[in-house]
């Protein structure tokens, strides 16, 4: 899960490793995902999200399609 200057740099990085281009998102989407994922980590009763909860978070951020299926 890396940060790149733009999509051209993503393509170059993937090409150099023989990998297909994966899932891309804007930093704003990344922040929303990080916020939902980590906002409660310092709470004593924190627990991992269930698969259904995870799917709901992905969808709320616009992360849809086969790449984001769990």
């Amino acid at each position: 899960m890396l940060l790149f200057r733009d999509e051209e740099h993503v393509g170059r990085w993937c090409s150099a490793r023989g990998l297909p281009i994966g899932g891309m998102m804007t930093p704003e989407q990344g922040w929303r995902l990080a916020h939902e994922w980590f906002k409660d980590r310092l709470k004593p009763d924190w627990r991992r999200y269930t698969p259904d909860e995870t799917r709901s978070i992905f969808e709320s951020i616009g992360l849809t399609g086969d790449f984001w299926k769990i």
Binding site: M1, H9, W13, L19, G22, G23, P27, F67
Partner: peptide, 30 residues
């Protein structure tokens, strides 16, 4: 930058992303 190594900065203030650049790439399906 994962490709060229250029320094990049994001900033969060008041629980919002207030400085942003580039694109995030996930190489592995969820």
């Amino acid at each position: 930058c994962g490709d060229c190594g250029a320094p990049m900065t994001l900033e969060v203030s008041d629980n919002a992303l207030v400085r942003s650049e580039g694109v995030i790439h996930f190489g592995v399906p969820a």
